[in-house]
Design a protein around this nucleic acid. Structure first.
Length: 645
DNA sequence: TACTGATGTCATCTA
DNA sequence: TATAGATGACATCAG
């Protein structure tokens, strides 16, 4: 609706222009005045923040009312105002003058435009050189807001003009009064245009106009529209410069905010920059793993730029990276990124075989340490050879699991498509698939064990230390097996704890139904599954709790810093307020010292004070005595007594 | 030997 | 109703 009104207004104005060209005078002020809500309701006087602009002066003029300086419709208003002024100019005698002024400005504008993006200061200087009166008119227009606050000669104060407040605005007020007096001699339309120009200048170039030059206050006779158009053109160029500046700044900021993983996928150049910064930083022990990742990825990207977008599994065994990848951490780090790449960039059946081979060469003990963050993930290793208590099926399933998972043959697609058709096939299908999906691809905190494997401390539980170490004897293995593992062995359950926990519920129920387990075995399988899932959940929960605590601690520190800063600002403000208060008192004493009472005696500052009213009028008032409050207190006491009675 | 941190387990609630 | 996840509470163990 608003847009429709806008277009209707524009169309109406254009029609008015056409009518004016053929000699028909059309007044659309009534329409505009009805379209834009008057400012009277929000004009709260000199004390209002809205009064910082001279809109209130225009309120009583022909078309000055209607728009608040902070109103979002201001642009529409000015667009309409410009068109309206043109319409008026068509039918007024000022048309040639205004046209000449515009042409003068048109000559000066290309100069500034040719010099590249002109700064606002330069533009202001040019305009001032062309017509010194422009700046004067600008300031003159700026000052009337103070001018309204200036009261005429106060009877109590005797002679001379005074400003609304007793402190140092007297000079500006006096200048403004002079300008106002001169402005009264100008045609009313010029005054309106001057105010209109002021409004737009304040909106566009607030703070640019220099107020310090007193000479500029004394030339109110120039054409304000000329200056307005100059400022408008300058503002456009300034805005262009600002846009270009902001664009450049944003680009640089974005390039700096590229995260590591985003850069790996999207931008090689930015990735290198990120890596360089990461490497250049002083690192802590916990960051070394990431730094190793960074160096690895950096070398990869440097060797083959296209590799940055490839899964890390395929980058793992590049010849140039042997030194870093032969270590366990390198392979494990690659496994992490390979996991990430699989999640987002490739399907499960494209797991790189080189990474699998790399993982096969890992010492099982070390791999166990890697998984030691989670008890279940510990048991996810190739446990077949070290589970003597399990059945042959279990052993074969585990070994086949390792071979299938690390082998070069694809397995996931087959695993997804082939239903359970026997224990052997079952374990070789779902275990590999869901191990990678449920554990390796687990998005929960349990996967964090893969991120920092070298720094993981060995849990105290024996099962989590060296369950699958090759050098440990059968006695040690039995001793270090988990309770559930031992129970599963005792019950002849041909599944590992990890398999039981990580298999989907449908398959788990299928296993329970299709293998003819006894009720005790079924109960044990359910308990193992429940405990295993709850174990992971507990780990996640504790991790979240620690993260929450860490976050709260950081927030506390941040709030403490903010509190200190606010306290400092408060103290500084109190000092400033005290200084200003002392200045006001001193000025009050000075003013009162120059005033005389009826008997011709100076006013006693102890008995009189200066009060600034809401309308800007300064009056001398006697100092309120405590007796006044006492009287009011008596009144309240009387009222209380009356109420009691 | 008491304390502390890490971990596992159970009970309970919620989706 | 079954299941999974979250979480508090408790037990256990190692340092």
């Amino acid at each position: 609706m608003q847009i429709a009104k806008k277009y209707f207004t524009e169309g109406l104005i254009q029609l008015t222009i056409l009518l004016s060209l053929i000699g028909v005078r059309v007044d659309i002020d009534s329409y505009l005045s009805g379209y834009y809500t008057p400012l009277i309701d929000i004009n709260l006087g000199p004390s209002s923040a809205y009064i910082q602009t001279p809109f209130h002066i225009l309120r009583d003029t022909l078309d000055g009312y209607g728009v608040h300086p902070k109103c979002t419709e201001l642009d529409n208003f000015f667009a309409s105002r410009r068109l309206l002024d043109e319409v008026r100019t068509l039918g007024s005698l000022r048309f040639p003058t205004q046209l000449n002024a515009w042409l003068v400005h048109q000559v000066s504008t290309p100069d500034s435009a040719d010099c590249g993006p002109p700064s606002s200061n330069t533009s202001e200087t040019n305009s001032g050189l062309e017509s010194p009166g422009n700046g004067a008119s600008d300031d003159c227009e700026h000052l009337p807001d103070s001018g309204q606050e200036v009261c005429p000669t106060t009877p109590e104060l005797g002679e001379g003009p005074c400003s609304t407040d007793a402190c140092g605005f007297l000079k500006e007020a006096s200048v403004c009064i002079e300008n106002d007096v001169k402005d009264e001699e100008e045609p009313a339309l010029v005054t309106q245009l001057a105010h209109s120009s002021t409004l737009e200048q304040e909106g566009l170039l607030d703070g640019i106009t220099a107020l310090s030059d007193p000479a500029q206050h004394l030339s109110p006779t120039i054409d304000i529209d000329q200056h307005w158009s100059s400022l408008l053109s300058l503002s456009v160029t300034d805005l262009d410069d600002l846009d270009s500046f902001v664009t450049d700044t944003d680009v640089s900021a974005i390039s700096q905010d590229v995260s590591l993983q985003d850069a790996m996928v999207t931008n090689i150049g930015a990735f290198d920059v990120t890596l360089e910064r990461a490497v250049s930083r002083p690192v802590t022990q916990q960051q070394r793993t990431l730094l190793r990742l960074d160096s690895l990825a950096s070398s990869n990207s440097g060797t083959s730029p296209g590799m940055a977008a490839l899964p890390f599994s395929s980058v793992c065994n590049l010849p140039g990276n042997v030194s870093s990848q032969t270590t366990l951490g390198g392979c494990l780090d690659e496994a992490v990124f390979d996991q990430i790449n699989q999640l987002g960039l490739e399907s499960l059946d494209t797991i790189d075989t080189q990474l699998m081979g790399c993982l096969q060469n890992i010492d099982p003990q070390v791999l166990e340490d890697l998984d030691s963050d989670s008890g279940l993930s510990l048991e996810s290793s190739c446990e077949g050879p070290v589970s003597p208590g399990s059945s042959e099926m279990s052993s074969s399933s585990s070994s086949s699991y390792c071979e299938d998972e690390y082998g070069a043959t694809g397995y996931s697609s087959e695993a997804d498509s082939v239903p359970s058709k026997g224990l052997m096939d079952y374990t070789t299908t779902w275990s590999s698939t869901h191990l990678s999906e449920s554990v390796w691809h687990d998005h929960s905190y349990s996967s964090s064990g893969f991120v920092n494997p070298p720094s993981v401390t060995l849990p105290h539980k024996g099962i989590q230390e060296d369950t699958f170490s090759d050098d440990s004897g059968p006695r040690l293995e039995e001793r270090e097996l988990s309770r559930d593992e031992l129970r599963a062995r005792a019950m002849c359950i041909p599944f590992s704890v990890l398999e039981i926990v990580n298999m989907p519920v449908e398959e788990f129920l299928d296993v329970l139904d299709s293998h003819g387990f006894s009720p005790e075995q079924v109960a044990l399988l359910r308990d193992i599954r429940r405990r295993g899932k709850n174990k992971l959940a507990a780990q996640n929960c504790r991790k979240r709790k620690l993260d929450a605590i860490t976050g709260l601690q950081e927030e506390v520190e941040r709030l403490q810093v903010q509190r200190d800063r606010l306290l400092r600002e408060k103290q500084l403000t109190a000092k400033t307020m005290g200084a200003v208060g002392q200045q006001i008192q001193q000025l009050t004493r000075d003013v009162l010292a120059h005033l005389r009472d009826d008997s011709g005696q100076p006013l006693n500052p102890e008995r009189f004070t200066l009060q600034c009213g809401a309308n800007g009028r300064v009056v001398v008032q006697p100092v309120r005595r405590p007796a006044v409050s006492a009287s009011t207190g008596n009144k309240t006491d009387k009222r209380k007594k009356e109420k009691k009675q």
